[in-house]
Amino acid sequence: MPRTPQFLRRTALPVHACLALTALIALTGCSDTSPSTSSAATGTTESAATAGTPAPGPGTASAPASGSSSSSTSSKSASPPVHVSIPSLGINSAVMRLGLNPDRSVEVPPADKGMTVGWYTGGSVPGQPGPAVLIGHNDTRYGRAVFHDLKKITKGADIAVRDDRGAEIHFKVTGRETASKKAFPTARVYGHTEDRALRLITCDGSFDAAGHPVDNLIVYAERE
């Protein structure tokens, strides 16, 4: 099973840089952590599922147990996303693919692609059953990034994802929450669901002593 890194690594970015949360596991600042499923979501209907467990080594954790992810054979054969837009926020971005690093941690968009959203290919394809995960920066050392204004999104807002065949799939925002990286709702975000769900994730909140944001912003949406 793939492993996912901490959201931020002390050596990866300067003090005020902010990377998006990586897929499949609760993440905290720059330290090792166990995932938590105790936080309560606002405006979401996803049920809890088995969360991942901590893995050896700093900044890594194992993926959820088999069956807790909703990616399916049909999802793997579906058309991948190439563009995402959020009209109410003026967001228009190409979508890059995020896979695994050599250490089997999930990739995040590089800092010099701060205005590009990433899709984790190990999860569901947007529009297919299960949670599809789009990861975006809030800020990087280059300045404001693609999800800088994501905190302004409102319930009912439209999110449009275009696939590589030109088909556009629309999702409606059902809720959002800010979660501490020490109590990230892993199961709620990445757990099994038959809904055609979309999650947008970035960083949020105040900075800790090391200059890293202490929270993550999670937006929940479902296909219309």
Rank of each mutant, 00 (worst) to 15 (best):
T154H: 15
A55V: 11
G29Q: 12
H137T: 04
V108K: 12
I201T: 13
A94H: 13
W119S: 00
H170I: 08
G123R: 03
Y120W: 13
S93R: 02
R9S: 10
Q128T: 15
V108D: 05
R144E: 14
R199M: 02
R188A: 08
G211I: 02
I91Q: 01
A48T: 15
C203D: 06
T37E: 12
N138H: 11
Y120F: 12
S36A: 05
N92D: 13
R223A: 08
P185G: 05
A197S: 13
S68D: 03
V15H: 11
G52H: 02
S38T: 14
K151E: 13
E194G: 04
P58S: 09
T11S: 11
T121N: 06
V133P: 01
P14W: 07
L19K: 06
K172G: 09
K181G: 15
L24Y: 15
L200T: 08
R165K: 06
T45K: 11
A40M: 14
E177F: 09
V95C: 07
Q6I: 15
K182E: 08
Q6L: 15
S105R: 03
S39L: 14
A187H: 05
T50F: 08
H212M: 13
Y190Q: 04
G123A: 07
D103S: 06
S68W: 00
H16S: 15
H137G: 04
S72Q: 06
A49N: 10
P14S: 10
S206V: 14
P2N: 12
A51H: 07
I25D: 04
L217R: 04
Y220C: 11
A157W: 00
K152H: 12
R3E: 10
S180Q: 01
A65G: 11
A94K: 15
L19G: 14
E177D: 13
A221C: 07
P58T: 10
L24W: 12
T53R: 12
G123L: 01
K172R: 04
N92G: 06
P14V: 12
T37F: 12
S77G: 12
P213M: 00
I135W: 02
P131C: 07
R199D: 06
S72H: 01
D112K: 10
A61E: 07
H192I: 11
I218F: 00
T174K: 01
L13T: 12
G52M: 02
A65H: 05
E224G: 08
F147I: 08
L217M: 03
V82Y: 04
Q6H: 14
K151Q: 14
T140S: 02
A209L: 07
V189S: 02
T121K: 06
A183Q: 09
G57R: 09
G191L: 01
P81V: 02
K182V: 11
G136Q: 05
T11D: 10
T45Q: 09
V173F: 03
G166K: 00
R144P: 08
P126L: 02
D215R: 08
K182H: 12
V146N: 01
D204S: 07
H83K: 12
W119Y: 01
P54M: 07
C30N: 13
T174N: 00
H83P: 05
C18F: 05
A78T: 04
R10C: 08
D204P: 02
T116D: 04
S39G: 13
A221I: 06
S72C: 03
P102M: 00
V161N: 03
N101A: 08
P56D: 14
